[in-house]
Design a protein around this nucleic acid. Sequence first.
RNA 1: GGCGACGUAGCCAAGUGGUUAAGGCAGGGGUCUGCAAAACCCCCACCGUCGGUUCGAGUCCGACCGUCGCCUCCA
Length: 480
Amino acid sequence: MALSIYNSLIREKQLFVPLHPGRVHMYVCGPTVYNDAHLGHGKTYVNFDVMVRYLRYLGYRVLYVQNITDVGHILDSGEDRILQGAQREQMQPMQLAEYYTRRYYRDMDRLNVLRPDITPRATGHVHEMIEWIEKLVESGHAYVADGSVYFDVSRFADYGKLSGRRLEEAQSGTRVQVADEKQSPEDFALWKKADPEHIMRWNSPWGEGFPGWHIECTVMSTKYLGHPFDIHGGGVENKFPHHECEIAQAEALDGTPFARNWVHNGMLMIRGEEMHKSLGNYITLEGAYERWDPMVIRFFILQSHYRGPLDMTEEAVDAAARGLDRLVGTVRALRKQAASAQEGEVSSDTSALLEGAREAFEAAMDDDFGTPGAIAALFDLSRAVNVRLSEVGALKQGDLDAIGSLFQSLAGDVLGVLPNEIATSQTAALSDRLIELLIETRRELRQAKAYELADRVRDRLSELGVQLQDGPQGTSWIVS
RNA sequence: GGCGACGUAGCCAAGUGGUUAAGGCAGGGGUCUGCAAAACCCCCACCGUCGGUUCGAGUCCGACCGUCGCCUCCA
């Protein structure tokens, strides 16, 4: 088996072959940092994070670039996002961008999203954008109009190849009035002249202004990843116009292909509706973390395929939480038993079990990053391991280590859904011994049939988050 | 209006032509237990509707119904 990826450009799954053997260059459209990240960002960046992790698991050296959009751009209302946010928060534009950039990474860190290798800021690449735009003007693919520069879509025959749109069709039904200086309604801005009150502005051959939205991704992706590069990702909602325009700008000059694989992930919905502030269902990650463990949200996201839409309901996330508990429970039990297991090598039974689990996991992931199937493989493994864990002496030290490291590799390193190792500080070691002491006391109470008192010990421990579990081999405990 | 996606059990969600339609949650029945929890075992779907292609379709084609996204700057 080998990895296949659905390529939006050709609309089918394709055996993945990187441009340079053993290396993958990947770009994903990052956030505009004018507000807190929401659950939709969570889905998108978890989806792409797992792709990066799996590619690395397969042995590729991945160079992962994700931009930070800190240039404002224009809203329908004619306002600039960053400017609007700066006014709202009483901050300077760059201060605002810095503030939300930090919060973005804080929120992503908690979701266990690995940071990209390079996180270029748009404001730091205005020079390169200007150079690129100049070349487009020189080659006749763009024109200057009243201090702004527009890409002439009619000069790029492939325009629409990603989104399946034709120019003739784009004419009707457009709901936004066309800027006067555009030659054609579908032409898009490469450079916008800055109004006097516009704070973020740069000098350019066309006067003071600021870059259009699409150009930053074209410039920054190719700067760090080459031209062409392997994978370009982003949300489906950006397929048109954003990604279509990126392609036009990148390929118009000399026909060099831009991204070889386009990967789009589906939208996150809240109870059947797209998330919108106006609908009152806008949920920031920070807000969601008050209700659920970030790891639960991550697990919930990965239980559906990245390309599909994901409808978020409380019921569904709660169900995912219980499912994740089950998986983590096995890992915890594994570690617990490892502390007292007999010495011994890995048995052939364990080896076969693990090999089968790994194969099932990889088969699912190889098929366009099928995380739901991969998770199913882990649940199957979990059940098989639980059976063995409950048989006294069935698993030797070697077995437990081997199983533990497979879980760590697949659930921990690739899917990123295992909580970090609990640090064994001195006080933690002490509390462990204190819990054992209480369990010992309770055992004696039970032997004396003092059940009321024994249950009280259990209940009080439960209140403290320590769950006792009586089994044939005595009582074990977990921290919930 | 144009482009596109999707409709699988109470809920979530895989499956892309072929023996018994993954997995999780919930539910039911058991094992274990002083009780409980956990764990384990068993049970729980004819795949939106109607046609068509095929020896054979959830899986391909068409129509219809329904939901959703995009159509100038939202991940």
